[in-house]
Design a protein around this nucleic acid. Structure first.
Lengths: 347, 347
DNA sequence: TGGTATTAGTAATTCGTATTAGTAGTGTAA
DNA sequence: TTACACTACTAATACGAATTACTAATACCA
């Protein structure tokens, strides 16, 4: 009822309108470039000047309420304790955030608790807090993905889950990555190549194992189950893997060890040094992820680099496309990794 | 005007009210336990049944708009590329998220761009998207903190910034942590103890350097500037530090090396092995952070464990207190770290 | 000159929730 | 029997922005 701008409060659109001598509607038209309205330049400038003077920023809650939308995407976070840190996930997060922010979205990071607990996802979505989800670290038949598909909630996943399900995913071809490693090692003269991989059930792990087997067969070598070692993603697993093989007689022992992560490879290199083996001469070792430590190890570690930044970008594209209601024709995107050869795998 | 529930839309409070045969006001009273209202048990149950049947969830935007509040806290993310990953920050984030979620808040993770760019903070706050911020990885005279203090925006920081400024922080006493390390090494007979630390300007680094000097003086040893080596937080820095000291004549060379992070210590251990030195016998090495890799290195690494989970909890307490408008009497909270002794520092 | 288009706006309504101000009906004490 | 308190609600409004449905004034055309 009064013409006084309410003080001691963030300015609203009406305050801007009052200062510029126009209606709130006009301010909205100008700020949103709403099509089909004619605003002469003088008015536009007057309003923009008022916006500037008051330091006006549109209120997000009001906008979201009115447009029945959200500027948030959810991402479920895992407990980082215990497992070694995930440089790949950190990088992925970073690139996803960058892409989201370029389009006015933000990332809401929440704790996913147990993997099977989908209640948080439901709650965030039903309350209108987020418009969709990014999912990473997928497993075979991942319950989160089953749930999101079932409810028709927009999401995009870094990694595949089940070949029968149709949904938006982006993945780096891990089979191809390890196949490149194997080809490289074979070319270096190795015939007995070990693989240290994760426990069964990991989707990424099973793809890499297939690539390993395929790579060996392509070179005319029949994979030996004794060359496969499994464990959590830790330095310790690498230590345990190599220690185990060192108990074999020399003529049956792998001369090269491929690992599904750099952190495991660090364990192998440690154990090799402890056993008096010189990595790059007595034993070839390769990692995966090309994390920042790979180039600083002694010797520098051959590794497989994934185009993580592109994964983030493409995932955000897929997700925002769904949210905008665009038909999702291409549901999966497969990207190629690149082998980075360093001294740890030279002979 | 119609009594039909609008279909194809998330149910609103009015839909619940209609189904239960009460007014929207009554539903609100029941769901929020608004004091000063008398609701008989039958009505309450009827309404709760309707809530359940419709799967109703209150709309967050509407609630935030009405209450002029937010259920989000912002956290600025750094580019993880280049620098080795920060297990401490990952853990800190995790514990902060847990504490926030226990009180109905969520974490909005954004990219902070350059450290001096405070525009993102301003924007998120002024638009009413977040109620405050968590800040980590502070520097001397940190511009983010200066800005947040200046604007009176609620925040709490993991780490101190400038002794003159008064604001809410939680820190782990890094000086004490390194002093414990030095005392342990001195007790083991070491007289020449090197320190590998970060470049000047890091607040955490300067505290640890003071603790190092104080620890030596407490043992009657005058610190020698030649025993200090600086570099980024990477394996490479550890390698460079030890390599540098190995060029000194044996009688001036440190016999023990304390590092301000485990990742640097990994570099020192690598370089030691390459130089034929056996860590734990020829050279004592200590790390900091007690990250998950410390116990799996060869030999296991003596390190300093920070109560990270408690840091997250306390920070969230301080921050939410400010947001609720409680007077902040105790502005800083200092927590004590704990030395974890393993074989890398035995003689 | 009258009718239609166009320009430059404005008033009113909506999104979903919380809250303030009320009201009808019953019980009860004076 | 009336005044008053209490119970069990409801109507109306506000939060801030977007949008639909108008209007007054001018320009244009036949």
């Amino acid at each position: 009822m009064t013409d006084e701008p309410r003080s001691n409060r963030r300015p609203s659109m009406s305050d801007v309108a009052r200062l510029a001598g126009v209606s709130q509607t006009t301010v909205s038209f100008i700020l949103n470039d709403t099509p089909g309205n004619s605003i002469p330049p003088e008015t536009r400038e007057r309003v923009l000047a008022a916006v500037h003077e008051l330091g006006y920023r549109p209120n997000i809650s009001a906008r979201n309420l009115r447009t029945q939308s959200t500027n948030l995407i959810g991402y479920g976070f895992d407990d980082p304790a215990g497992v070694a840190s995930h440089p790949v996930l950190d990088q992925f997060l970073y690139s996803a955030i960058l892409s989201l922010e370029a389009t006015g979205y933000h990332l809401l990071t929440f704790v996913a608790g147990t993997r099977t607990d989908t209640a948080v996802y439901e709650d965030l979505y039903r309350r209108g807090q987020v418009s969709g989800f990014l999912v990473a670290n997928t497993n075979d038949n991942d319950p989160r993905i089953a749930y999101l598909i079932d409810r028709g909630i927009p999401f995009a996943s870094f990694g595949r889950a089940n070949d029968e399900w149709r949904f938006a995913w982006v993945d780096v071809d891990g089979g191809d990555g390890i196949a490149q490693v194997v080809a490289h090692l074979v070319a270096g003269g190795h015939k007995r190549i070990g693989l240290i991989t994760w426990p069964e059930g990991s989707k990424a792990g099973s793809h890499r194992e297939s690539g390993y087997a395929a790579g060996l067969r392509a070179a005319g070598i029949e994979p030996d189950p004794a060359w496969l070692f499994r464990g959590e993603n830790s330095i310790q697993t690498g230590v345990a893997g190599l220690s185990h093989w060192l108990t074999l007689p020399a003529e049956r022992r792998p001369t090269a060890v491929a690992c599904v992560s750099d952190i495991i490879a660090v364990g192998v290199m440690n154990a090799a040094a402890a056993a008096g083996l010189q990595v790059g001469r007595d034993l070839a070792v390769t990692g995966y992820d090309d994390s920042s430590l790979a180039q600083f190890l002694h010797p520098p570690l051959t590794s497989v680099r994934q185009p993580i930044a592109e994964v983030g970008r493409r995932l955000v594209e897929l997700l925002l496309g769904q949210i905008r209601g665009e038909p999702a024709d291409a549901t999966g995107v497969m990207l190629a990794p690149k082998l980075i050869i360093r001294r740890s795998s030279q002979i």
